[in-house]
């Protein structure tokens, strides 16, 4: 596949890959795990994320994974896609479509992804643009909530409880989920762009602002005692807003989020195809069809409460291996070779 990315396209894609699957659920989980420390814990994650990106940028030219490692990445992305599709299905079933068979909803979602993946790479890399207005709407509707926030809920902190902090830190790692794509897409960015310095710093801070703001808003809107009963806190938060022209902002937001997640699914499928095309030639169409069959058939099985939990449990650990450990391993291996 031939295409090249401008830095803006590149960062927009990475941003979507990192946010699409998790940004609606992670606040609740983090607050459950880390209590009022959540925001401090997340600042730590933010710094770490920045360092990780810097590290990736310095080392990316050494990132030459073998076929086995590539297979691991492909499996990992398929897993993430299955997870976020199950998540979409589960949320849709809870909020609006309890009676519709999930396979029917999924059929449409997967069809969109399949259609997009049949198009030229140019189309897919430009797809995230549709989300830009959504990001703005998202921020704007969060600003609505500001008068209702209770700022004393930032405290008291309990940083001495190391277990709580570590637990929270681990949970907050899900926000870094798509970061590995940096390594794969970096070489597609038009050369002679300097990433170290402002570009990465701006991106990392935007990423941080996005997640941090959504976290803070949730933390300051719901008392910690009720966090457990509002699994999709952001949606509840918008539901409680009164606007004149329409009730239930949350429904609109649910669909914005769904669109967001669907584009993420498309992008992950694209990444899988991209990585696949690097090692295998020919039969791209069949491979595309194959992965989309997987996306169609597997998620309905997981779209129940228990199974979704089961699917989500290993995410953090998988993510740490794939995003942090595996690249380091590959870098070291390649360094040995070059020396």
């Amino acid at each position: 596949m031939k295409f090249s990315l401008t830095p803006i396209q590149f960062f927009l894609i990475i941003f979507l890959l990192q946010t699409g699957s998790v940004f609606i659920t992670f606040q609740t989980r983090l607050l459950e795990g880390a209590g009022r420390n959540a925001w401090v814990v997340f600042i730590m994650t933010g710094i770490l994320h920045y360092l990780l990106l810097l590290f990736y940028e310095r080392q990316h030219s050494r990132f030459l994974p073998g076929p086995f490692v590539l297979l691991l990445y492909k499996m990992y992305w398929i897993y993430i896609n299955v997870l976020s599709l199950s998540n979409i299905l589960y949320s849709l079933a809870i909020w609006l479509y309890p009676n519709t068979p999930s396979i029917v909803l999924l059929l449409f979602i997967v069809f969109v992804s399949f259609y997009a993946n049949c198009c030229k790479p140019d189309t897919i890399i430009n797809l995230p643009v549709i989300i830009i207005p959504a990001i703005l709407i998202f921020f704007f509707s969060l600003v609505f909530v500001f008068p209702d926030l209770e700022w004393t809920w930032l405290f008291p902190l309990d940083l001495k409880d190391v277990e709580l902090v570590l637990n929270g830190f681990l949970i907050s790692q899900v926000t870094v989920v798509g970061a590995a794509s940096f390594l794969f897409l970096r070489k597609r960015v038009v050369s002679d762009v300097k990433m170290i310095g402002w570009p990465i710093a701006i991106y990392a801070s935007f990423w941080f602002l996005f997640f941090f703001m959504s976290l803070i808003v949730v933390q300051l809107f719901f008392p910690l005692e009720t966090i457990a009963i509002v699994p999709q806190a952001l949606l509840y938060l918008l539901k409680s807003q009164k606007v004149n022209f329409v009730e239930r902002l949350d429904l609109f937001f649910l669909f914005i989020w769904m669109m967001w997640s669907m584009i993420t699914v498309i992008l992950f499928a694209f990444l899988i195809r991209l990585v696949h095309a690097e090692t295998n030639s020919g039969k791209q169409y069949k491979f595309n069809l194959l992965i989309h069959m997987v996306f169609l058939l597997v998620p309905p099985f997981f779209a129940t409460r228990d199974r979704l939990e089961m699917l989500r449990e290993p995410l953090v650990y998988l993510h740490l291996t794939i995003v942090v450990v595996l690249p380091i391993f590959v870098f070291i291996k390649n360094r040995r070779k070059t020396i």
């Binding site: 609006l96 479509y97 909803l105 069809f111 969109v112 259609y115 198009c119 030229k120 549709i130 769904m258």
Partner: peptide
């Protein structure tokens, strides 16, 4: 058929088509 869900699917298809 699906309410807003159907519209969102349509919107995405339309958008991808326009990009193409």
């Amino acid at each position: 058929l699906f309410g807003f869900f159907g519209m969102v699917i349509g919107l995405l298809l339309l958008f991808i088509h326009l990009l193409n």
